[in-house]
């Protein structure tokens, strides 16, 4: 059991079967499909957050919700619901991601702000920008893009495919590329990594850009999926992105990341809510239990670590 991601998947499977236990097995494929669709958004932002957290203590991106909203708002506004503009919209979302990432890192590097404060303060600016640019108007995504984001391929939702492809790329880059090794080394010991000649600041810069790009992609897809960008669309993904990283078995202290765990945890976070819903729990009880389960998993993971 030295694979930390197993726990997230076990928990997801448990929540899945507990939900189905109530319906005596009916609706299994529908539930799995919904979990993959909604889990995909959490997984995409979680992958980005995982890379940042891997950078080591104090590194976390709190601007993910604002980035999602800003990218989705600007992209949908530019597309204006016209068919055939999907690629242009994606391009705009991606450039918003890059711009936000560069701005975040500039604050962290040039002003030497702690990343928590830098991304927090910057996210207020991004959010204002999103409010100013759409003024509460809800622009529908182009039909072809809406069809894509709610469609399926080989039985799996398209958004899940996007999430899986991004996860595979992240995994290969982390495990097999020089950049991934640099990232892990920086996260384990920044000073040692710098002394070993690793371009630490370059690694940090590219990580902050990557997380913003992932958030932009998630925002773009989420807006297309749900029929338009809303100003609060990213709100729940702030805690979600951190939760899936930790439940997925990545070390919060950095230097040790876990790609499969992020997906397992993303599925789990959706399944546990639908499980509690199907047992008729109200919003209050649902939140209390979700929180208790998160803490329970963290305690379980830590006692395993102490024994090892």
């Amino acid at each position: 059991m030295n694979k930390p991601w197993i726990w997230a998947w076990l928990a997801a499977a448990l929540a899945f079967s507990a939900t189905l236990g109530l319906t005596s097995g009916r609706g299994a494929s529908e539930l799995a499909y919904a979990a993959l669709s909604f889990g995909a958004f959490a997984a995409i932002v979680g992958l980005g957050q995982m890379l940042v957290i891997t950078l080591g203590p104090g590194n976390v991106d709190l601007s993910i919700p604002a980035t999602m909203t800003l990218a989705a708002t600007l992209a949908l506004k530019a597309m204006g619901g016209n068919p055939g503009t999907a690629l242009m919209g994606l391009g705009i979302a991606l450039s918003v991601g890059v711009a936000v990432g560069v701005a975040n890192y500039a604050l962290i590097f040039l002003l030497r702000l702690p990343p928590i404060i830098a991304t927090l303060a910057a996210s207020l600016v991004y959010q204002s920008f999103a409010i100013w640019s759409n003024r509460g108007l809800r622009i529908k995504p182009p039909q072809d893009l809406a069809d894509f984001s709610t469609g399926r391929l080989l039985g799996l939702p398209n958004v899940a495919w996007v999430g899986l492809v991004l996860a595979c790329i992240t995994w290969v880059v982390l495990e097999r590329s020089v950049w991934g090794r640099w990232l892990l080394a920086s996260g384990q010991n920044l000073r040692a990594a710098r002394l070993a000649g690793i371009p630490v600041e370059l690694v940090r810069a590219s990580t902050y850009v990557t997380v913003a790009v992932f958030a932009a992609i998630a925002g773009f897809l989420l807006a297309s999926f749900s029929g338009g960008a809303a100003l609060n669309m990213g709100a729940e993904y702030l805690l979600m992105s951190i939760a899936v990283v930790v439940i997925g078995g990545s070390s919060i202290a950095g230097g040790d990341s876990n790609v499969p765990g992020v997906w397992g945890a993303a599925l789990f976070m959706f399944l546990v809510v639908s499980m509690l819903n199907s047992y008729g729990a109200g919003a209050g009880v649902r939140n209390v239990l979700t929180g208790t389960i998160i803490i329970g998993i963290v305690i379980a993971a830590s006692s395993r670590r102490i024994r090892a």
Binding site: V60, L239, A243, I252, N287, G291, T292, I294, I295
Partner: peptide, 20 residues
């Protein structure tokens, strides 16, 4: 335990109790 995660979980608990 990492405090950032435990308090994150607790934010769900407090929020849930408040709704309750």
């Amino acid at each position: 335990l990492p405090a950032i995660v435990v308090t994150l979980g607790m934010s769900f608990v407090w929020g849930g109790l408040a709704l309750f």
